[in-house]
Amino acid sequence: TQTTHELTIPNNLIGCIIGRQGANINEIRQMSGAQIKIANPVEGSSGRQVTITGSAASISLAQYLINARLSSE
């Protein structure tokens, strides 16, 4: 079954999640098997909405990979 998880990434950290020309986010997508959508910046908001869709296992793996990127910054 597909589930969806949403999280907010601070604007100053979204770059390390996306990577150069989307390299990091594509790697996270491939490794986790989850669909990951990053919302466009919202004016006045300090973060970007990230939506992860997939199986429970792929979502938790995607979250783990995202958190690993954030903590390495």
Rank of each mutant, 00 (worst) to 15 (best):
Q2E: 10
Q2P: 08
T3E: 15
T3A: 13
T4H: 06
H5Q: 15
E6I: 14
E6C: 15
L7S: 04
T8Y: 13
I9G: 01
I9D: 02
I9R: 02
I9S: 00
P10Y: 01
P10H: 04
N11E: 11
N12D: 06
N12M: 05
L13K: 14
I14Q: 02
G15R: 08
G15H: 10
C16K: 14
I17Y: 02
I17E: 01
I18Y: 03
I18S: 04
G19Q: 03
G19H: 01
R20H: 15
Q21F: 06
Q21A: 09
G22E: 15
G22H: 08
G22L: 04
G22S: 12
A23N: 07
A23V: 09
N24S: 11
N24L: 08
N26D: 09
E27Y: 08
E27T: 09
I28T: 07
I28Q: 02
Q30N: 15
M31A: 13
M31K: 15
S32Y: 03
G33W: 04
A34L: 00
A34V: 01
A34C: 04
A34Q: 02
I36T: 03
I36D: 01
I36A: 00
A39R: 07
N40Y: 07
P41C: 09
V42M: 06
V42Q: 08
G44K: 06
G44M: 05
G44W: 04
G44F: 07
G44Q: 05
G44Y: 14
S45Q: 10
S45A: 12
S45F: 12
S45G: 05
S46V: 07
S46W: 08
G47M: 13
G47T: 12
R48Q: 06
Q49S: 12
Q49K: 10
Q49I: 11
V50E: 02
T51D: 03
I52G: 00
I52D: 03
T53Q: 10
T53W: 06
T53C: 08
G54W: 00
G54Q: 00
S55K: 06
S55G: 06
A56E: 11
A57F: 09
A57D: 14
A57N: 13
S58R: 05
S58P: 03
I59G: 02
I59Y: 00
I59V: 14
S60Y: 05
S60Q: 13
A62N: 01
Y64F: 06
L65D: 04
L65R: 02
I66G: 03
A68T: 03
A68L: 07
S72Q: 04
E73A: 14
E73W: 05
